[in-house]
Computed example of a mutant assay.
Amino acid sequence: MELREVFARNLRYYRRKKGLSQEALAHEADIDRTYVSALERANYAASIDMIGKLAQVLDIDPMLLLQRER
């Protein structure tokens, strides 16, 4: 599995675990909902800064978004 796919899977998992919709996560991170959707489908690669921002909203260590095994 490519790292982009790992990130997509983890982003979806932690977003759902926190009980957030894509729209709510996007609002909290000050990004567009369609961007969250594209990230979760592994259509886009997130920057380091974006990984940090999303992790902050999800209240997790950024490393968890890139971790191959949970």
Rank of each mutant, 00 (worst) to 15 (best):
E2K: 14
L3V: 11
L3M: 15
L3T: 15
L3A: 13
R4T: 07
R4I: 11
R4E: 08
E5K: 13
E5I: 01
V6N: 06
V6L: 07
F7C: 05
F7I: 11
F7A: 02
A8Y: 10
A8T: 13
R9C: 04
R9A: 12
L11E: 00
L11M: 05
R12T: 15
Y13G: 01
Y14A: 08
Y14N: 11
Y14T: 15
Y14E: 12
R15C: 05
R15A: 05
R16E: 11
R16D: 01
K17I: 09
K17H: 04
K18P: 08
K18R: 14
G19H: 07
G19C: 11
G19N: 04
L20K: 00
S21W: 05
S21N: 02
S21K: 02
Q22I: 06
Q22Y: 01
E23K: 10
A24P: 00
A24I: 05
L25F: 01
A26F: 03
E28L: 13
E28I: 00
A29W: 07
D30E: 15
D30Q: 14
Y35C: 03
V36R: 00
A38D: 14
A38L: 13
L39V: 08
L39R: 00
E40D: 13
R41P: 05
R41W: 08
R41M: 12
R41V: 08
A42V: 03
A42W: 03
N43W: 02
Y44P: 01
Y44F: 13
Y44C: 07
A45H: 07
S47N: 04
S47W: 01
S47A: 01
I48E: 13
I48V: 15
I48L: 14
I48F: 11
I48N: 07
D49Q: 12
D49P: 03
M50L: 15
M50C: 06
M50G: 01
M50K: 11
I51L: 14
I51E: 02
G52W: 05
G52C: 07
G52N: 13
L54A: 06
A55I: 12
A55M: 06
Q56G: 07
V57H: 01
V57D: 04
V57Y: 00
V57I: 11
L58H: 06
L58T: 10
D59G: 02
D59H: 04
D59A: 10
D59F: 00
I60V: 07
I60M: 06
D61R: 05
D61I: 09
D61C: 04
P62R: 02
M63G: 04
L64S: 06
L64A: 08
L65E: 05
L65Y: 03
L65C: 04
L66H: 02
Q67V: 03
R68E: 15
E69F: 03
R70K: 11
R70S: 13
